[in-house]
C-alpha cells in the first residue's frame, strides 16, 4: 500500500471511529519497515465546531500469525489490561478493520527514545539513568500482578507447562535449535543438559503473566525516565522470574558490563524496587533464568542469521548477528563453571 492510499484509508477509518467528525491525516511516515510488521506514525487532525485538535497516533500492522507470538485481539487486550494495571504502555485505541489490507491497530504515540546507547551515554539522559532501574523494577512487578483472568487474556500462550515452565522452555528452544542450526554448538549441548538438571530440582511456581522481552531497547524513555513498555509479542503465561533473568543478561548491557540491569543499574536496586511494589524475588530461579536467557538469545541469533542465510532477508544486521552467538556461549560457560 502506498503512503497516499494509506493516508486516505486512515482518514476514512478514523472518521468512523470519531463518530463522523471530519478527520485529516497529517505527517504520515513509516517508522519501521519490514515485510512482516510495519509501524507508521501520523497525526489525526480532528475538526470540531470550535477548531482543530491534533492527536499523535501510531498505526501498527501485525506480523503474519505465528504460533506463540501475541498479535491482534490478544495483544490489544493485553495492552488494555496493562494500561489498567498502571503499567506505562501506549494506550490502544482501535482495532483495524477491512478498510486495511492487513490486521492492524491504532494506538497513541508516545514520544521519546528507545536506542539503548543514547540512554547509556548521552548527557541529556542523566536523570533518566538514575530513575530507570527502580522504575523498571516497579513496572515489572505490576506486569506480573496483572490477572490472567483479565478479558481477552485466555488466548495467551501458556508456557507454564503445568508448573515447570523451565523444563517446558528448555524443550521448546532445544527443538528450535535442532531444526535450524547450520553449525554444531557443543556449548549449547552442554547447556541443555545442565539447565534441565537444574530445572528438575527447582521450586514449584505460581504461573503469572510474563512480558517475555522486558529490557532496555523495548522501553520508550525521555530525559526524566521510562515512558512506555513496548514489544509484548513474546508475552506468555509462565514463571515471572524469567523476566528478571532476561533483563540481566550481558547482551543488554551494551558495554556497561558491571551494571547488570540494562547497563544502568544493579540487581539489588532492581530487585528492591520489584519487591517494594509487591513482587517476590526467588534469587535461585532468577539465576537459572539468566543462564537460560543466554541460551535463548543465542538461539534467537541463529534464527535471525538464518533468515539471511536462507535468502529470506538481505539485511546486513541479520547476517552479522550470526557472529554474536559466541557471546552467549561464553556467558553460558561462565555459568556452568561457576554454579
Amino acid at each position: 500500500m502506498t503512503s497516499n492510499e494509506l493516508e486516505e484509508r486512515l482518514a476514512v477509518f478514523l472518521q468512523r471511529q470519531y463518530a463522523g467528525a471530519a478527520v485529516r491525516v497529517d505527517n504520515l511516515r513509516l517508522l519501521t519497515g519490514g515485510a512482516s510488521r510495519q509501524t507508521w506514525s501520523f497525526d489525526a487532525i480532528i475538526r470540531e465546531t470550535d477548531g482543530e485538535t491534533s492527536v499523535p497516533l501510531i498505526l501498527r500492522s501485525d506480523p503474519r500469525a505465528t504460533p506463540g507470538i501475541v498479535t491482534g485481539k490478544t495483544e490489544f487486550a493485553l495492552l488494555q489490561a496493562a494500561h489498567e494495571a498502571g503499567v506505562p504502555v501506549p494506550k490502544v485505541l482501535f482495532m483495524g478493520d477491512q478498510t486495511f489490507d492487513v490486521p492492524c491497530m491504532v494506538m497513541e504515540r508516545v514520544e521519546g527514545e528507545t536506542i539503548p546507547r543514547r540512554l547509556l551515554r548521552d548527557g541529556k539522559y542523566a536523570t533518566a539513568r538514575k530513575a530507570m532501574t527502580p522504575q523498571l523494577g516497579e513496572i515489572l512487578a505490576r506486569i506480573h500482578q496483572i490477572s490472567l483472568d483479565s478479558p481477552g487474556l485466555k488466548a495467551l500462550p501458556d508456557l507454564a507447562g503445568g508448573a515447570s515452565p523451565a523444563a517446558y522452555q528448555i524443550d521448546k528452544f532445544e527443538q528450535l535449535y535442532r531444526a535450524i542450526t547450520p553449525d554444531p554448538h557443543p556449548t549449547f549441548e552442554l547447556a541443555f543438559r545442565w539447565l534441565r538438571e537444574r530445572a528438575r530440582t527447582m521450586s514449584k511456581i505460581v504461573p503469572a503473566l510474563v512480558h517475555g522481552d522486558f529490557r532496555i531497547g523495548n522501553v520508550i524513555f525521555g530525559p526524566e525516565g521510562a515512558r512506555a513498555i513496548l514489544d509484548w509479542e513474546a508475552a506468555h503465561v509462565g514463571d515471572p522470574m524469567e523476566d528478571l533473568g532476561w533483563i540481566a543478561i550481558r547482551s543488554w548491557r551494551f558495554g556497561n558490563d558491571d551494571a547488570p540491569v540494562g547497563g544502568i543499574g544493579s540487581r539489588e536496586e532492581f530487585w528492591r524496587a520489584y519487591e517494594d511494589a509487591g513482587g517476590v524475588v526467588d534469587a535461585e530461579r532468577v539465576h537459572f533464568w539468566e543462564a537460560f536467557s543466554n541460551l535463548r538469545w543465542g538461539i534467537i541469533c541463529i534464527m535471525q542469521a538464518k533468515t539471511y542465510l536462507d535468502g529470506r532477508s538481505k539485511s546486513v544486521e541479520l547476517a552479522a548477528i550470526g557472529r554474536r552467538v559466541a557471546e552467549t556461549e561464553w556467558e553460558l560457560l561462565q555459568f556452568m563453571e561457576e554454579w
Binding site: E327, E329, W330, L333
Partner: peptide, 12 residues
C-alpha cells in the same frame, strides 16, 4: 569460543 570472540567481538 575465545578464539571466535577474538574475531567477532574482542571487547567481549
Amino acid at each position: 569460543i575465545r578464539n571466535n570472540l577474538l574475531v567477532s567481538n574482542p571487547r567481549w
